[in-house]
């Protein structure tokens, strides 16, 4: 089974989700090719990084301004002809992967398997349904496999040790259907939410953006943690959408997840219940978050969290 992995990259480096997806691809048992689509020096650097990853046989670099923003129309058209010589496409289940993979699958007339949690056999996979309240084992008999891979479910491939050749590939470039207008990147020097070792998340209890910042940030700083949030906190504008954890936000599985003033709705649990250790602070002893927490503290967050931060 020849696998093609679509790399998620930024700033000339591969994202951790790419390394996890490479691990999933190697489990399919055949050659692994990594496709880096992008533009300019950063794409070249990402391709060079991909060439170093253990287990990668070949790197394809599609360097074109049309791929710089990963517009689905352009990138899907690039991938489809490459599938003539590959049996499986694996994309990280990131916003790019989720945007592009189904477009490729439909063009290939195959059903995609979304959010793969494990590879049970060459054509058998597990995936979450109903917000992770059930796990389906599915088998695909499709001519080509198209999978999106949940990063937190696969170990990262070693970033060093490989020496794959980097080959240029050309595609059809700009499909002329869509145009990038702009972005508001919430750049931060904190660890990335989906791969951080520790995540501190705040919920509706945090009242407003200033209070969220005043209570959550110092604790996160102390623990070198990424900052997460419930949907209620994001909806109320305490923090940006890219911090939302849950069924419809990001999936995290850190060593330690600290839920501050979060009730623990199933849609939130869907995004964090695979964390190694869950700590919850909530004033309501009946909050459902305590049912999944390893360590719980029933307390008012406005007293307990500053005290915790100062004592750590």
């Amino acid at each position: 089974m020849k696998a093609l992995v679509l790399a998620e990259h930024g700033g000339g480096a591969l994202k951790d989700s790419t390394l996890s997806t490479i691990t999933a691809a190697t489990q399919l048992g055949g050659d692994v090719t990594v496709l880096v689509a992008g533009s300019g020096a950063e794409a070249q650097q990402a391709a060079d990084a991909a060439a170093q990853v253990a287990g990668v046989a070949r790197v394809l670099l599609a360097d074109d301004a049309a791929y710089g923003q990963m517009l689905a129309e352009n990138v899907a058209a690039l991938i489809v002809p490459l599938m003539d010589s590959h049996d499986a496409l694996l994309c990280p289940a990131t916003s790019n992967g989720k945007n592009i993979a189904p477009r490729v699958a439909a063009l290939l007339d195959v059903m995609q398997v979304s959010d793969v949690l494990s590879i049970e056999g060459e054509r058998t996979f597990t995936r979450p349904i109903y917000a992770g309240n059930a796990i389906a084992t599915v088998e695909s008999a499709e001519a080509k496999l198209v999978l999106t891979v949940r990063g937190t479910s696969f170990a990262k491939a070693e970033a060093a040790g490989g020496s794959a050749p980097v080959e240029p590939v050309g595609g059809s470039g700009d499909a002329g259907l869509s145009r990038f207008v702009g972005c508001e990147d919430s750049a931060s020097d904190r660890p990335e939410l989906t791969s951080a070792g520790v995540v501190v998340s705040g919920g509706r209890a945090l009242k407003d953006a200033e209070t969220f910042e005043a209570i959550i940030t110092p604790l996160a700083d102390k623990l070198h943690a990424a900052i997460g949030a419930s949907r209620a906190a994001v909806d109320a504008g305490y923090i940006g959408n890219d911090h939302q954890v849950g069924q419809t936000g990001k999936i995290v599985a850190p060593e330690v997840y600290i839920a501050v003033g979060i009730s623990g709705a199933i849609q939130h649990l869907a995004g964090m219940k695979d964390s190694k250790i869950i700590i919850a602070i909530n004033k309501d002893p009946d909050a459902p978050i305590f049912q999944v927490a390893d360590v719980g503290l029933v307390a008012d967050i406005f007293e307990a969290v500053p005290e915790l931060t100062s004592k750590l």
Partner: peptide, 20 residues
């Protein structure tokens, strides 16, 4: 359907925690 659902199971549960 193109995909065959072989089985649907409960996710692994979490062991009970402690309150401090």
């Amino acid at each position: 359907p193109r995909l065959k659902v072989l089985k649907v199971s409960e996710p692994a549960g979490r062991a009970a925690g402690v309150l401090v």
